Simulated assay, not measured.
Amino acid sequence: MTDQDDKTGPTRRTVLKTGVAAGFLFVTGLPLREGQTPVASAAADAAVGGTAAPVDSVPTVLRINSREFSVALDPRTTLLDALRDHLDLTGSKKGCDHGQCGACTVLVNGRRINACLTLAIMHEGDEITTIEGLAKGDDLHPMQAAFVARDGFQCGYCTPGQICSAVGMLGEVDAGWSSHVSADVSSKAVALTDDEIRERMSGNICRCAAYPNIVAAIRDASEEV
């Protein structure tokens, strides 16, 4: 059957074509030209400088691990992608890329954040610390040394984020921040129990389930940091 076979009403093909055109217009704001598929229409608009116009790079200076890096970035670049793809600091891992696994955790001005959820250009002037910046030469940070001593990793993919998160977490404890499991939220003296560690590290997922050793490593390091 063609669109002309039934003069009394719309055919299924007409309804489908109308629906596709309406959907394409709703999503892109561009009319679907006669005889074109959505892909062909988008490609044609891009070819004449329509919807696919390039975004100008922005000169950006980032202070990372006590060094300054100058880089030109698409303003939509996340801090994680800037670290990994532009600065070759690949210690921070891309796990879920949705802020759910913690593999990309870094420290910004001493606070732990998910690098996949923030734009790099937002952090000009901030002090950014990645896993590469924790050690002092050949001397491991106490948290790194504790993870090694306690075998707090298996595949190791989540480990950089776990360690950075743990360092930031100890800073929160020192500042007297309570957690969901704190017995006395009004007290500035936080007892770093295993329950406290587990709760405060719950944003960092270990798919190998090395959690008991991670908790032990953090407990050991808390006594040295």
Rank of each mutant, 00 (worst) to 15 (best):
L87A: 08
T51V: 11
H180G: 14
A209C: 03
S182D: 08
N213I: 00
V185D: 13
T78H: 07
A210S: 13
C101Y: 10
G125K: 06
V215I: 14
G29M: 03
V167T: 03
G171K: 02
V48Q: 08
A22V: 09
A209R: 01
K17N: 07
R84M: 11
L107P: 10
A146E: 04
E127Q: 12
A189K: 15
A120N: 07
A72T: 06
G171D: 03
Q154H: 05
V225I: 15
S165A: 15
T78Q: 08
S179Y: 06
L170G: 05
R150M: 08
D138F: 11
R219K: 15
L87T: 07
A183H: 14
G203M: 01
I197H: 02
A183R: 14
V71S: 02
V167K: 00
W177P: 00
F24H: 15
R84N: 10
Q36W: 09
G125V: 03
H86S: 14
R219H: 15
G91Y: 07
A183C: 04
F69C: 02
A209L: 09
G19Q: 12
D85S: 12
T8W: 08
D88I: 00
I214K: 01
V225A: 04
G23L: 14
R67C: 08
G50F: 01
A189R: 11
C158V: 08
E224W: 00
P75I: 12
A216I: 00
M1R: 13
L16D: 09
A120E: 05
L62R: 09
S179I: 13
T78L: 07
V71G: 12
K136D: 15
G50P: 01
E223H: 11
T105I: 12
E127R: 11
G23F: 05
V181R: 09
G161N: 02
G35I: 01
R84T: 05
P59G: 13
D6F: 15
L170P: 00
D85N: 11
M122P: 00
P160S: 11
E132K: 10
T90R: 13
M143P: 03
N204M: 05
A183V: 15
S92K: 00
D126T: 06
A44I: 03
A115I: 08
L134K: 05
P31H: 13
D56I: 05
E172H: 03
D5M: 12
V39E: 13
L117Y: 07
V27L: 14
A166F: 08
L32P: 02
G9I: 00
H141D: 13
I113T: 01
R207W: 01
D74Y: 11
T11C: 05
E68S: 14
C206Q: 06
L192V: 15
S57I: 12
R67I: 07
A44T: 08
V20C: 02
A22W: 04
G35L: 04
G91R: 03
C158M: 05
L83G: 00
T90W: 02
D184G: 07
R112M: 09
D126W: 01
T14V: 06
G137W: 06
T60D: 07
G99R: 10
